[in-house]
Write a protein that binds this DNA or RNA. Structure first.
Lengths: 228, 228
DNA sequence: CGTAGAACTAAACAGGCGTTGATTTTTCTC
DNA sequence: GAGAAAAATCAACGCCTGTTTAGTTCTACG
């Protein structure tokens, strides 16, 4: 099925049937609404209105609401450089990818997934599988400590909590804070969890790093690093 | 079991009319269902069936579904000893109250509030107010560091994440782990966040006061004026 | 042009929702 | 026992849900 039905002819290679545009518009509206009000309240009628389309079109393009939802939360991880040989760097990548990229796009599939996972068992299952495969296992593989998987899962849960309360629930003190402040306070904790040894005095049974003085979270703002 | 057929002829208070029992049964069923499937899916019919009552009775006792929900999530904090003069102890109380008491009662109003807060703006607002007043401010009052409120909010968000993923989302690695292991790994992090300066594992701190190189400029033991 | 097929839409469906008012059953007092 | 009050139920309402069907408009190419 080659679809080079170009009326323009000369340049070719620009099919983009009109339906594709509509389909994308519906998908975007769906993600927006799913992330905003959750699965149940994001009715087909509401999504259709948001996309300036008839409700029947939504069904025509996606068959059913569940399929629309499934595609709305399907998502391949954009963080290729999540894990590095150096666990300490992994922490920074992880934190920054999760917290910063989210701020840039609050209607991302990830946001949809997190919000709906609390009330939809299907979304919860997707989240479980996705997080376990894409982050827990990858992070755990680079953690040089016992309970590697638990440490990875724990760090993921903590990031989930911070991101959720900051961007979805909009808890006052957390939502109004500067992202840099949040990262400055949080990063050392995650480092202590999944890169033990690089941080002093936070892990009971670790090799003595013997670096006195610096307390996690109270260090002066070093490494601004926020590439805008 | 307790058939309490006391009829008060002369003086005295009402003896737990039969309606009270029914009302309580409805409330319990409502909490169970709200926590289990969220606000929308916990229909009045489902709640009524769970309580072995006609759907009309639910309305008769609570007037409306929103009022039923509001009462289901209303809740006064049982943790009186949350905050102590010693921040390090506060961490333990906080963690254990949030994580352990939850395991004991997954259908608590708190669980209902957390689960529904992701899809109900009303629940989200209740959660914001409640958490800010009852935990963030109380914890922050005992944090001896700059960004006290942010630190408190951050720790709350992290606990929210852990509890949610362990008990509500049931993330494999986190749900299957021993609670003691979770606490052992997590506690130092929270201690570093809201009780900076206390060294974990080295010595059971005897008295707060003489710490080398503590925060300059900030008075220790800030005013407890936010109490009551 | 004409016509085929893609894109869109209006109208209706069966079923579930929260809620209501009237009615029946239970419980208590005399 | 009779009668009143409380509690529980029945049957229905109006509305909204996801989905279907049949029909209309638009678009591309002979």
């Amino acid at each position: 099925m080659t679809e080079d039905r170009t009326k323009t002819g000369a340049t070719g290679a620009e099919p983009e049937r009109k339906g594709e545009r509509t389909r994308r518009r519906i998908m975007e509206a769906a993600r927006r609404k799913f992330a905003e009000v959750g699965y149940e309240r994001a009715t087909i009628r509401v999504i259709a209105a948001e996309a300036h389309v008839d409700k029947a079109s939504v069904i025509q393009y996606f068959g059913t609401k569940q399929e629309l939802f499934r595609e709305a939360v399907s998502w391949h991880v954009p963080i290729e450089e999540l894990t590095t040989p150096d666990p300490a760097r992994t922490v920074d990548n992880y934190l920054r990818a999760m917290l910063s990229s989210w701020a840039a796009d609050p209607d991302s599939p990830m946001a949809v997934l997190l919000r709906t996972s609390m009330t939809s068992e299907e979304a919860a299952e997707l989240l479980r599988r996705h997080v376990t495969k894409e982050t827990v296992e990858r992070v755990a593989a680079n953690v040089d400590a016992p309970d590697a998987r638990l440490r990875a899962a724990l760090s993921g849960a903590m990031m989930f909590g911070i991101a959720t309360q900051r961007y979805l629930l909009r808890m006052p003190d957390l939502a109004e804070a500067d992202l840099d402040d949040v990262l400055r306070l949080a990063a050392p904790l995650f480092r202590a969890l999944i890169a033990p040894g690089s941080e002093p005095g936070s892990e009971p049974r670790t090799e003595p790093g013997a670096e006195p003085g610096s307390e996690p979270g109270t260090e002066p703002r070093s490494d601004p690093g926020t590439g805008s």
